[in-house]
Design a binder for these strands. Structure first.
Lengths: 220, 220
DNA sequence: CAAAAAACTTACTATTGAGTAATGTTTCGT
DNA sequence: ACGAAACATTACTCAATAGTAAGTTTTTTG
C-alpha cells in the first residue's frame, strides 16, 4: 500500500509564526486528516453513510483501515467533520453580508448563492442527507445549534429586508423554511457533470424566490 | 407474545365479488401486512432505516421477527412499500386536478396542498430521507420512475399556468425543483405535535411560492 | 549513525442484525 | 370434533463491519 499523499503542500497559510506552532510533522498530520475527511465525504456521497465502510474509504485512499483510524477516532467523528465543513461554508456566507450596507434582499440573494454552492459541494450530502440519528447526543446537539444559527441568520435578513422595503412582508419563519428546503434539496439532484454550474443554479433559485408564481404587471 | 391485531376490520371495500377473491383469511393477511408496513414507517421515521432493526419493528408490534417476515419478504421490500405509499398520495393529488377546468395556478396550489400532507404523513420520511442506495436496482428504478412522473406533472401544471396567464413565465424545470425541494424538506422538520396542521403549512407554502420576495405594488 | 517518534500494516475481536429452519399453537371449514 | 391451513415462536446461521492489538517500516532529530 502507498503512503497517504498530502494535497499539494501549498504552504497552508502560516499567519503569524506564533510561539507553539505545530512542527512540520503536525502540519502534515492535519493536512492529511483533511484528505481523509474529504475522501469520506465522497464515499458517503456515493454510497450513503451506512453503506460506505471504513474499508471503502481506506481503499479509495490506497491505505489500510487502521491508517484512517490514525487520523480520525471514529466513523461518527468522520461524519461530524463532513457535516461541519459543509455548514461552515453557509455560515461564512452569512457572516460576509452581516454588516453590509446593502438592502436586505440583495444580501439574502448573496447568502442564497453561497448556500447553493455549499450544498452542491462534496460536503453537500453530509449536511443534507445524513441523519442526526447517526451522531451521538453531543455531536448531534452541536450540529443542531449550527443549523439553528443559519436559520436565525436567514430570518433576520428577511426581517431586515421587509423593514427596509426590499422584501414583500411575509411569514419569515415559513419563508426561511421553504427557501432552506429548496436549497438543501439541491444536494439530492445536483451532480458534478450537470450542465449548470452551482452558481447558475443559485441564480435560477434566486429568481424563483424573488419573482413568485403570481403574474406581475410589468410596470409600463 | 400477542397476535397481530387488524386495524378495525372495516370491510376493506370488496368491489366485485369476482371469481377468485381471496378468502377472509387472505383479506386479513393483506390488512395485517399494511399494519406491518406502517409500523416500519414509524420505526424508520424515528430511528432511520439502518438504525431501525426488524427486531425493533417486531417489538413495536408486540410480535417476533419471523412474524414480520411472514408478511413481508425483506427489509428492502418494507422500505419500498413505505416509499411507494408516500409517493402514491402525491400522485393521487396530481391525478385529481388532471382534467380540472380551473387555471393552472389554482390546480398547482391544490397539488402543493396534497404534496405537503403526504410529506407530513408517517410515510414522509421514507419518501424523502431514505436513500435509493438502500434499494436494489429494480426497486430503485421503479421509485425513480414514480418520482420522474411527479416532476413531469408539476412542470406540466407550471407550463399550463404560464400559457393561461395564471402564472408568471419562468424556468419551469428549476421552479419545479425548488418547489419540490421545499415541500420534501417538510419531512425533516414537521412533527406530529407541531402547532400547525399540515394543511396550514401547505397554505403558507402556497403563499411563499405565489407571492415571491420582491415587493408587489398593491394595486390601489 | 542511532535512537525515538511518526506513519502504516497484518491479523485479529466482537457485535450487530438480516434472514431461516424447525416447531408449536390458533382458527376455520366440514 | 378434527384435520388442514394459517399464524406465530424459539433458537439458530452467517455475513458485514466498526474498532483494536501488536508489530513493521519510514522519517526525523540529536
Amino acid at each position: 500500500m502507498a503512503r497517504l499523499t498530502c494535497p499539494s503542500t501549498a504552504q497552508a497559510s502560516t499567519p503569524g509564526g506564533s510561539a507553539t506552532w505545530p512542527s512540520r510533522r503536525h502540519r502534515n498530520h492535519s493536512l492529511k486528516r483533511e484528505v481523509v475527511v474529504r475522501a469520506a465525504a465522497r464515499a458517503f456521497n456515493a454510497k450513503g453513510f451506512h453503506n460506505a465502510s471504513l474499508d471503502d474509504i481506506a481503499a479509495a485512499l490506497g491505505v489500510s483501515k487502521p491508517t484512517v483510524y490514525y487520523y480520525v477516532e471514529s466513523k461518527e467523528q468522520l461524519l461530524f467533520e463532513c457535516f461541519q465543513a459543509g455548514l461552515e461554508r453557509i455560515r461564512a456566507g452569512l457572516r460576509e453580508v452581516e454588516h453590509s450596507p446593502r438592502p436586505g434582499r440583495e444580501r439574502l440573494d448573496e447568502v442564497v448563492r453561497h448556500y447553493a454552492e455549499a450544498v452542491a459541494s462534496e460536503f453537500g450530502w453530509c449536511m443534507v442527507r445524513a441523519e442526526d440519528q447517526d451522531l451521538g447526543p453531543e455531536l448531534s446537539l452541536h450540529i443542531k445549534k449550527l443549523k439553528a444559527e443559519i436559520d436565525r441568520g436567514m430570518r433576520r435578513l428577511l426581517d431586515e429586508g421587509i423593514r427596509d422595503g426590499s422584501i414583500e412582508p411575509c411569514d419569515t419563519k415559513m419563508t426561511a423554511f421553504a427557501m432552506a428546503g429548496a436549497l438543501n434539496w439541491i444536494a439530492h439532484w445536483y451532480r458534478e457533470n450537470q450542465p449548470m454550474t452551482p452558481a447558475q443554479v443559485a441564480d435560477k433559485f434566486v429568481a424563483v424566490f424573488e419573482v413568485g408564481l403570481l403574474p406581475r404587471r410589468t410596470p409600463a
